[in-house]
Design a protein around this nucleic acid. Structure first.
Lengths: 227, 227
DNA sequence: CGGAATATTGATCAAGATCAAAGCGAGTGG
DNA sequence: CCACTCGCTTTGATCTTGATCAATATTCCG
């Protein structure tokens, strides 16, 4: 049942345009953790970290978009999440990254040492609580992903659109990712994603000015068809 | 590792035979948390907690098996996990339970107040770390569930069998749950689960002495077909 | 025993995958 | 400035997997 991207072809595989520049900033992990971090920029499809690598750093998207994914034994790719500006990713409880992470578009991320956070948490229970809460939100997100994957194609696509819409203001969605990325996130093929979007456009639920831009024309209708 | 004979509640059947009796024990949450807990016994299909309820207690299965699940808008049920003897469940980061929990068979669980754990964690960073680690393991489990749900029927069933086999010694699996439970966990129908098991038996990969007992005849063949 | 719940098996259907062919759009070089 | 190309997306035709509908078998208990 080959569906998702069978082979990660190296096509436009940018040499992971990694560009590091030290910056001093004071962002927050997820609400209350102050940290200093370096900033790095990755080109489109640049690898941020690989599955199984030591999880020594925690990341925050400053600009752009990041996807985490796993490649299954048969070569298919399953995307676990998309992270947009402001989102933290790569913070693991264990010692290594269970997924790989790549920049979807050219992206800037802030980096902080995991050990620094863990050290803080050992002394400050508020920080410890913050780390736990972060993992709890990831857990809730993945649980929602499970529910998505047992729905039919239209429901999955609508779920995805509503999720993306909730993460940016307005009724227009500017998609940083390709149809293949969407398909690999939803467990569908690009053809099914494309046909479903066309169908929604025909039902006047959305408009597709171009492939990367989607306008929600009737959000409540969308909410209903997502069951 | 968890011996404490609960005075049993009589047979008890359906109506969520909830019966509480205080016991003094010293089990551990997941490695290092000492806690005192009361013991409760639930009849088959007895409700332990409902989705959306306050998550004031944390549970540990002493005997039996527990399932957590959500009911989708269209009435379908998605099982999130099965917890067997020794497993902790119901520990949430947030204030309420995102799933419902029921006893699969008559089960005894130990209960401890969540607030007690959180209170401990505020003073003892090892406990805090333990709570975080627990949620991290749940996260890993749900991530594995996502990967399972994008596989084909045979792969899902084999995944399930290997998972269950790894949780009990030997090559015989004693299933506490029905075909419907398995189907709702795997995102399949009971017919597909049944046919797939029959198929595996015909291929001599497993044996089915009866519906609730499965023998793994060829574990490496199973591992291969699960891709 | 008898009856209800659970499981298996069979026949058919449909959603979505696969295979195949255009269409589109942005960047490149003549 | 235009034509060409490359990668991405859409559309079409067909096939396959697992769902659905239906009947039979088995198990569990009262």
């Amino acid at each position: 049942m080959l569906m998702q991207t069978a082979i990660r072809k190296g096509s436009s595989r940018q040499p992971a345009g990694r560009e590091l520049q030290i910056t001093s900033t004071v962002p927050e992990l997820a609400g209350s953790v102050e940290m200093m971090g370096a900033t790095m920029t990755f080109g489109r499809n640049g690898e941020i970290y690989g599955e199984g690598e030591q999880a020594d750093y925690v990341y925050k998207v400053v600009r752009g978009a990041v996807r985490t994914y796993k490649v299954l034994a048969d070569g298919r790719r399953q995307i676990g999440a998309f992270y947009l500006a402001g989102d933290v990713f790569g913070l693991e409880v264990g010692e290594e990254h269970p997924h790989s992470a790549e920049a979807v578009t050219e992206s800037t991320v802030m980096v902080v040492k995991r050990s620094a956070l863990i050290g803080l948490a050992a002394r400050d229970s508020d920080v410890a609580r913050e780390l736990w809460a972060f993992t709890g939100r990831e857990l809730a997100r993945v649980q929602a992903h499970v529910l998505l994957l047992v729905k039919n194609a239209q429901e999955r696509v609508v779920d995805f659109l509503l999720e993306m819409a909730n993460r940016q203001p307005g009724d227009a969605i500017e998609l940083p990712m390709s149809r293949q990325d969407i398909a690999d996130y939803l467990g569908l093929t690009i053809e099914t994603v494309s046909r479903t979007l066309t169908g929604l456009e025909n039902e006047a639920a959305i408009a597709l000015p171009n492939a990367r831009r989607i306008l929600l024309r009737n959000r409540s209708a969308l909410r209903e068809m997502n069951a």
